Simulated assay, not measured.
Amino acid sequence: MKIIIAAGTGFLGRNLEEYFKEKGNQVYILTRKPKRKNEFHWDAKTLGEWKNLLENADVLINLTGKSVDCRYTEKSKREIYSSRINSTKVLRKAVDYCTNKPKLWLNASSATIYIHSETQMNTEENGIIGDDFSMNICKSWEKEFFSPDHEDVRKVALRTSIVLGNNGGAFPKLKLITKAGLGGKQGNGNQKVSWIHIVDFCKAIDHIIDHENISGIINITAPNPLSNEELMMELRKQIKISFGLNAAVWQLELASVFLKTETELLLKSRNVYPERLITSGFRFLYPNIESAFKNLLQPFTSAKTKDF
């Protein structure tokens, strides 16, 4: 296949590139700072020569968006919004230019589109979507993606949970604070954590590509969310750390100022279930957190795990 990954130099993009290259596919990356032969410059808001890559592409994957791991200043909010909306808009223009359009367009979204819930399990069909900054960003993002529709392009919005891997994302930070003795619960610890192993993330994307009946919204997450307290307890167990200091909400609020982030990333309860993946026949290699942590903590385990 010919696969285009927009913003493909980050954690998810690097792993997807490796996964699909190992299967013999051609992978091209759109990035602000191209360094390799398969990387092409784009600024995520204006058309350029890169648009020619989309001609006869099998898959277009858009992962563009300013990281939400920042303080939600008015400037940051504007950048979080515009980076997602503008990149989706310009990709739509590029798709419109194509004589032979990409067969499939996968666009990033987020499991944070659902409300804070410790009891309500959010599937694609019954998930409850609320009204705050983060949820409204996701709603606007998906609206821009699906409208106007391209009848001859299959579109899938990826409502992705926290992705766990050794070469980026949240897991290296979680491992670091746990080894430092700070791996207790955050807040009351009841907030649900939805997550997925990086290998299952890549395989889920592959599954969607292979199953032409899948379109629209899909939750990209493991089937067993667990509480923050349970998550940290299991990580301490796997690392063989007997204790972990808890962090009260006021301590997290104070620390978030110095770390230039927001407590929402730790305290929001994301209780999400991958109903469409499962009903379409997808099988997780790491369905529970114990198996995921065991794999990630193996000596010399890397992004190119043998499970690829």
Rank of each mutant, 00 (worst) to 15 (best):
L245I: 14
I239R: 00
I205P: 04
Q251A: 14
R32V: 13
L231I: 03
I85T: 08
C98G: 12
Y19E: 07
V193G: 05
E49T: 00
D200F: 01
G281N: 11
W50D: 05
N122W: 09
E290K: 14
K66E: 15
R36Y: 14
F145R: 04
K143F: 09
A6S: 15
I278M: 15
N136V: 04
G183D: 11
N52T: 06
K192R: 15
V68C: 11
L254N: 11
E151I: 13
I220R: 01
S215I: 09
V153Q: 03
P148Q: 09
W105E: 06
T64A: 15
Q191E: 12
A248F: 12
G216P: 06
R154M: 09
I4A: 03
D58T: 01
V163W: 02
R71P: 04
F300H: 12
M121E: 12
E124P: 09
T261W: 07
Y81W: 05
A7F: 02
L91G: 01
A44T: 09
T178V: 13
A7C: 13
Q238D: 04
L30Q: 06
L30F: 07
S83M: 00
M1I: 10
E17Q: 15
L47F: 01
F258S: 00
S140Y: 06
T178E: 07
P172I: 08
N38H: 15
Y286G: 05
F11L: 13
S194A: 15
W105G: 08
C70H: 05
C98W: 04
W141D: 08
D58W: 01
I137R: 03
